[in-house]
């Protein structure tokens, strides 16, 4: 197991290395650099003519004149040694400061969504498999097709309306007005969770519908296997037979697709965030590309991919814990 862990961890580091190079290449791709943009912004319309040498000096000031490999090394060195993602030109502060809160929110929302998805889909899927072709099973199938069919921005609007109309929560945002400026307290934390619940439900909706069907299908397959009857023939109580044997294998496909779920949540998040006016990373990413504020863009890209790579690692490890056959093959 230890060997397996080390193997996967090394794999993760290697993947992140290549990802960082790719992110840097993407950062370099747009034509021009921030020196051009800075000069344009600062002096356009002022009548001052900007010469090549002026731009060159700006470039020097930002350190953009150095060769690409050198800038890559400085950049990645800063991240690895000081967790410093470089400067944000457009906001005239560090990329860390610009991303800070939004990154935290994204991570909290991601974990909340995943948790909600699995807490709902796994028990319900198992229940449906145990009661196949019962009214409850058919009902769940209909609900899960609805889940797959309703677009999530639509669901977000409906839930917002219901929230405001019947539960008196504020529309969107992270905090109720009274907590916006307040220092951190349990009250503020609870308020944050209340505001995150609706986006988490929206994001978890379709994933739950899909994973529920996966769990139901795998569980049905596992239930038909001989080892289940063998466990019954040993005289175990039915609940123990179900939970210890087939249920443990039925969650394998869910665990192995954690990475896909993370991916999907990241791609749906900007739309939901827009509808619910949540400050998150996607919107900032587009803005920073438009501004050629490349270190901010790079930090966001790197962070999102790092989360995906890390969640894949988590998925591998959990899978190995659940199924010894994977552990022993050594992957």
């Amino acid at each position: 197991m230890l060997r397996f862990l080390i193997q996967r961890a090394v794999g993760m580091v290697v993947t992140m290395f290549f990802v960082s190079i790719m992110v840097f290449v993407i950062m370099e791709l747009p034509p021009g650099d921030y020196a051009d943009r800075y000069a344009f912004r600062k002096f356009s319309g002022t009548g001052v003519s900007v010469t090549e040498s002026d731009i060159e000096s700006i470039r020097k000031r930002f350190g953009l004149d150095r060769p690409a490999w050198e800038r890559y090394l400085t950049w990645i060195g800063g991240i690895v040694t000081r967790f410093d993602f470089g400067p944000s030109f457009a906001f005239e502060t560090s990329a860390n400061a610009v991303i800070g809160q939004r990154a935290g929110l994204t991570v909290v929302l991601l974990l909340g969504t995943l948790l909600l998805t699995y807490l709902l889909s796994i028990p319900i899927g198992i229940y449906a498999a145990l009661h196949r072709q019962s009214p409850a099973d058919y009902g769940l199938t209909v609900v899960s097709y609805l889940g797959l069919a309703i677009p999530n921005f639509m669901l977000a609007l409906i839930l917002l309306y219901l929230g405001v109309r019947y539960f008196g929560t504020t529309v969107g945002g992270l905090f109720s007005p009274e907590y916006t400026q307040a220092p951190w307290s349990w009250g503020k934390f609870a308020d944050l969770l209340r505001h995150l619940l609706v986006p988490a439900v929206v994001l978890a909706w379709s994933a739950t519908a899909l994973q529920l069907q996966t769990v139901r299908a795998t569980m049905s397959d596992e239930l038909a296997k001989l080892y289940v009857d063998a466990a019954r023939a040993r005289g175990l109580p039915e609940w123990k037979v179900i939970l210890k044997y087939p249920a443990r294998l039925a969650i394998n496909p869910v665990v192995s697709t954690i990475g896909f779920d993370v991916n999907r949540i990241f791609s749906e998040l900007p739309i939901v965030a827009l509808v619910m006016s949540l400050p998150e990373l996607g919107e900032l990413l587009i803005k920073s590309f438009l501004d050629l504020d490349m270190y901010v863009a790079g930090a966001i890209l790197l962070m999102l991919t790092a989360i995906i790579v890390f969640m894949n690692f988590v998925s591998d490890v959990v899978l190995a814990l659940l199924d010894p056959r994977i552990r022993l093959e050594g992957g």
């Binding site: 001989l226 009857d229 005289g235 443990r248």
Partner: peptide
């Protein structure tokens, strides 16, 4: 019934591969 199964009456099956759960050790079961 549970006391009979595996207690007074033991059972072995045709496929030795499939009658153990693959995710627990022999000893556990």
């Amino acid at each position: 019934l549970r006391r009979l199964r595996g207690g007074d009456i033991g059972m072995i099956f045709q496929e030795p591969m499939a009658s153990f759960s693959p995710v627990y050790t022999i000893g556990n079961q």
